[in-house]
């Protein structure tokens, strides 16, 4: 069996007793080295999951395990060494006055010697392609660049899990692309689990599995291909259906039979080409 790195067991959470549940009996697990996307409409509870995972919030019911250890006030500091988080607003998580200071922040907190810090800062900035900006101040960087620095800051402490909590939501298309490319690059070089929280279905294509959230509940857990095939469920969950999936839907209505649900242009065109040759 694969190693489970994060487990949610019947977790429920609300901010106050008078308020409705934000998460309602949520269970799932994430394996080591896996890339999982959590999608859902605004207010579906997907960001709450991230904050529960490293103890920024505490659930009223259920249990959360990271590496087999329950998340409790006593264990959170240990757990936070293994879980890195990148948040939505690029400005509000940039602590340092320059790029290198920001990457250093997590290392300084954990008492790394200066020599090791310098080495890791250099390495991680290289990995996210920000090595040319070491001394830049945050207000002179684009949103995408700030988020890449945030990723570098997380990578520097070598966590087992990296959570991107809607880290692309406030970026322009170029910034989004930068982040996606950075993630692929990092995934190739490190054994690390990615948890990407988003409402953009285009960003889940590369994930191993997708968790669909709606109204505080898990609606579906499946690989992207299966998720794309369940168009009605996506629509009911307030999500968009990607262009390819919509087109496939219309083609199916016209009697075209595809061998599998295509995820992107390439796969769809390949299917169509096969049919074309067989005509």
């Amino acid at each position: 069996m694969e190693k489970r790195i994060v487990t949610f067991r019947n977790v429920s959470f609300r901010y106050r007793e008078s308020l409705p549940w934000v998460l309602n009996n949520v269970s799932f697990s994430i394996n080591a080295d896996e890339w999982v996307a959590i999608i859902g409409h605004n207010g579906s509870g997907k960001s709450t999951i991230a904050k529960l995972m490293n103890g920024l919030l505490t659930p009223q019911e259920g249990e959360i395990l990271v590496n087999g250890t329950p998340v409790t006030p006593e264990t959170i500091w240990e757990i936070r060494k293994n879980i890195g988080m990148v948040f939505q607003n690029p400005d509000n998580q940039f602590v340092g006055t320059t790029v290198q200071d920001d990457v250093a922040f997590g290392l300084e907190n954990r008492g790394f010697p200066r020599k090791e810090m310098v080495k890791r800062i250099k390495q991680t900035l290289l990995q996210v392609g920000m090595e040319a900006y070491t001394l830049h101040e945050p207000h002179r960087l684009s949103g995408g660049q700030k988020q890449r620095v945030a990723i570098a800051g997380v990578l520097a402490i070598a966590p087992q899990v990296i959570i991107l909590d809607e880290a692309t939501a406030m970026l322009d298309p170029r910034g989004r692309l930068e982040i996606m490319e950075t993630m692929h690059h990092v995934k190739e070089q490190h054994n690390v689990s990615f948890i990407m929280i988003t409402h953009d279905l285009k960003e889940v294509v590369r994930a191993d599995r997708v968790i669909v959230m709606s109204e505080g509940k898990v609606v579906e857990i499946a690989p992207p291909r299966d998720i794309f095939a369940k168009k009605e469920k996506l629509q009911q969950s307030g999500l968009d259906i990607p262009f390819v999936a919509k087109l496939v839907d219309e083609l199916t209505k016209l009697g075209t039979k595809l061998s599998k649900e295509p995820l992107n242009h390439d796969e769809l065109l390949e299917e169509l080409w096969t049919l074309y040759l067989k005509r």
């Binding site: 490293n54 936070r80 890195g84 948040f87 400005d91 998580q93 200071d101 290392l107 300084e108 008492g111």
Partner: peptide, 25 residues
Amino acid sequence: KRAEELAMAMEARGYQGGDGRTKLR
């Protein structure tokens, strides 16, 4: 709102006050 989010980000990045901290600069 910024202060709240920043505090959360700092906590997530392991900030627990000045003790045991090292410095880059």
